[in-house]
Design a protein around this nucleic acid. Structure first.
Length: 706
RNA sequence: GGACGGUUAGCUCAGUGGUAGAGCACUUCGUUUACACCGAAGAGGCCGCUGGUUCGAUCCCAGCACCGUCCACCA
């Protein structure tokens, strides 16, 4: 509680002195046991759980500040706001961090074994996994701290396992050997969404494949000659008139002289290279597709360490790049290489560790997407869930249209293990069960079952987040949520998958509205990223300007539909705004007999024209803000609040107040208290401090009725 | 390759079928006891380019240019 002397003597507001202390008022309240803070209607916000490896960046800040404005506003409107915080275990990301730690000690995860590794990861999580939630406090977020969720909480894991079992029972899950994107460093398969393509300078090799019993050859262009050893056919487009006579003939793979058929398939692009494709089903996704149609075998030549395997003849044991060079040399020596072209092409890399990916056949678990995609499609089409701004619907529909089955298993150690039990001798024999099966294995004739060492794709568990966190009877009431906010790059990765999971398991979409917020770019319009060194640390800004100022800066710059180029000077402007508020309330404090919360003005008061003006303006401002908050245009709401406060209240009304003779404190008490509430969602710390010190009220301001 | 968004004051961005708006920056003035982290006044714009619809277009339509983002990946 600030002393009168302090208020009188300090014309400069220093947010850094107060914000942490102010937050404690809210935290104490929000961390108290009950989820139900008020008896009003529920307003449920679904948090995007940050990774435990994460630290606060601008994207989190913007997203959650918008939601916090909403949360505070709704509370003041009488809603019971539920906004449970939580974190995601972030499979690959966390595993990589722990592996890096080990590496400093000269160890790999294989040196210490799975059990010790997982223990180590838990230790890491207990030590660092709460950093980002602490940073959320710095932002001033009014999260429901009485419940903090984690995707490896026991009840959460159980929900994930149950979901898998149910999918399996209903025939949506299958296990199959097929080529997938595989990271040889992480030693795990990846989904399409976890691979990132980068343009690389490469070489296109034109190799001569001779026809059987002939002196003629066909030229085949390839960037990866080492996969030649795994070719099972050559293919041409049936509409490509140049090669029609080749269909049905037999070609010979150079160096190893194996016969392969020449087939026709529409998937071949006549415009690329020579128009002749070498089909390597084991190491190329498109080739695999072709091979299925033509009944071709999968012949693997590269293993999970990116080395040539036992099918690679003399090249066995060599790294794929070494093998490539050797093969190119030999082809040259034998005059089987027509030419080498320099090209630029896109190569897939692991999104998490940056290693070039291999395409390798591996036995993995897949979720059939056909039906689920339909569910997801209908939900948005029928407006059962609203995506706003609506242009993002297109992104979503495009993804669903071209969706492939989802590889949900990962060969990682940190994560939720599949509820699958393999026969210890042959893992083609398995049982899906939440507990160890009691039946005997049909092969071994005894109970030999071993729990699968595979874990789920983290996104498989994130997709269940909206209901997996609600496991008590009381919590179940909060499904579905009213709103989830998301950056646009995870619309498909996360939002889409939550939609079909929710519909499938609960019959209801997990949220009514999806708000896609703009991306925060650098001042120059570049993406903010750690690896590019273009990121700006919000915590550092808070430490310089204060949390309220950062909130102001971000929201002030926010526009309805455009990405924002973040500029620190708006945070500075925010600090000026805070100072203006501080001083306006000082003036008020020093000029009325008693600061009071006045909610209603008696009609017996005599109003003068400037009173009527400000009162009507106040009503208009409130109405405008309500409209804008409900459509998530918090920026427009802030601008209105700013404009009203600064230009109408300060520049005109307070100036007039100084000069007038007929002062009735009740009016000023009313106007200032209403304004304080209007400002609160945008600059919560300062308004709370004023409420606490000037009004001498110890409650959270967001419980005051708006 | 496909899709989406942007182009308005020096900068960052709002906005409207009928004399163009904000904040910052700038210029001039002002220390009037809440605030110089302030106030008052002011300057600054063929609203990307080319056509079309219209009595009238910055706004609607088409094309083009440039910038940005996402998706797909070609062996």
């Amino acid at each position: 509680m600030l002393k009168k002397e302090f208020i009188k003597n300090n014309s400069v507001y220093n947010p850094l002195l107060f914000e942490d202390r102010i937050y404690k008022i809210w935290f104490k309240d929000l961390a108290s046991k009950k989820l139900t803070q008020s008896k009003g209607k529920n307003f449920v916000i679904l948090i995007a759980p940050p990774n435990i490896t994460g630290t606060l960046h601008m994207g989190h800040s913007l997203q959650n500040i918008i939601l916090d404005i909403l949360a505070r506003y709704k509370r003041m409107k009488g809603f019971n706001v539920v906004w449970m915080p939580g974190t995601d275990h972030a499979g690959i990301a966390t595993q990589n961090v722990v592996e890096k730690e080990l590496k400093k000690e000269g160890l790999t995860r294989f040196d210490i074994g799975r059990e010790a590794f997982v223990k180590r990861a838990w230790e890491w999580r207990n030590k660092y996994g709460f950093t980002i939630l602490k940073q959320f406090e710095k932002l001033g977020l009014t999260l429901t701290w009485s419940k903090v969720k984690f995707t490896l909480d026991k009840p959460y894991v159980e929900q994930v396992e149950k979901a898998f079992l149910e999918y399996f029972k209903k025939g949506f899950i299958y296990r199959e050997l097929r080529p997938i994107n595989f990271c040889v460093r992480c030693q795990t398969p990846l989904s399409d969404l976890e691979t990132k393509y980068k343009e690389q300078n490469g070489k296109l090799y034109y190799v001569k494949y001779f026809l059987k019993n002939s002196n003629n050859y066909v030229l085949v262009a390839t960037t990866r000659p080492e996969t030649m050893l795994g070719d099972t056919a050559l293919a041409i487009n049936p509409k490509d008139s140049r090669y029609l006579d080749l269909i049905g003939k037999t070609a010979i793979i150079p160096l190893i002289n194996r016969d392969i058929p020449i087939i026709a398939d529409l998937l071949v692009d006549p415009g690329f290279g020579t128009g002749v494709l070498k089909v390597t089903p084991a190491h190329d996704l498109k080739d695999y597709e072709i091979s299925l149609k033509h009944g071709l075998k999968i012949l693997t030549v590269i293993d999970m360490n990116a080395k040539m395997n036992e099918n690679a003849f003399d090249f066995q044991g060599l790294d794929y790049l070494t093998a490539r060079n050797l093969i190119v040399n030999k082809l040259e020596q034998l005059n089987l290489l027509e030419k080498i072209e320099e090209i630029k092409h896109n190569v897939p890399f692991c999104d998490r560790c940056g290693t070039e990916l291999q395409i390798l056949p591996s036995k993995e678990w897949f979720l059939k997407m056909n039906y689920l995609a339909t569910l997801a499609y209908k939900a948005v089409k029928s407006k059962e869930v609203v995506i706003t701004p609506k242009r993002f619907k297109k992104l979503y529909f495009n993804w669903l249209k071209e969706i492939r089955d989802w590889c949900i298993s990962r060969k990682l150690w940190w994560g939720q293990q599949l509820p699958v039990w393999y026969c210890s001798r042959n893992n083609d024999n398995y049982i899906v069960s939440l507990t160890k099966p009691k039946v005997k294995c049909s092969l071994c004739k005894k109970n030999c079952w071993l729990r699968s060492e595979e874990v789920f794709d983290t996104w498989f568990s994130s997709a269940l987040w909206p209901f997996a966190i609600l496991y008590t009877k009381q919590e179940k009431k909060y499904y579905p949520a009213d709103i989830v906010a998301s950056a646009r790059d995870i619309i498909n990765l996360w939002i889409g998958r939550m939609i079909f999971s929710g519909k499938f398991f609960k019959g209801k979409i997990p949220f009514k509205t999806v708000y896609i917020h703009p991306t925060v770019l650098t001042k120059e319009g570049k993406r903010m990223s750690k690896s590019l060194g273009t990121g700006i640390d919000p915590v550092e800004l808070i430490n310089r300007y204060g949390s309220d100022a950062l909130r102001f800066g971000l929201i002030w710059q926010l526009s309805g539909h455009q990405d924002m180029r973040f500029d620190e000077r708006y945070v500075e402007q925010g600090k000026k705004f805070l100072n203006k508020i501080w001083n306006a309330y000082r003036f008020y404090y020093l000029n009325v007999k008693k600061v009071e919360k006045v909610e209603v003005l008696p009609s017996t008061i005599k109003f003068y024209s400037y009173d009527k003006k400000i009162l009507s303006s106040l009503e208009k401002t409130k109405a405008f803000i309500e409209k804008k908050i409900n459509t998530f245009e918090v920026n427009a709401a802030l601008k209105k609040a700013y404009d009203f406060f600064w230009h109408e209240l300060c520049d005109i009304y307070l100036e007039q107040w100084k000069k007038r003779h007929n002062k009735d404190d009740r009016i000023l008490n009313f106007v200032m208290f209403q304004t304080l509430k209007i400002l609160h969602p945008f600059v919560p710390h300062l308004t709370q401090l004023i409420f606490y010190s000037f009004y001498k009220d110890k409650k959270a301001l967001f419980y005051e009725k708006y």
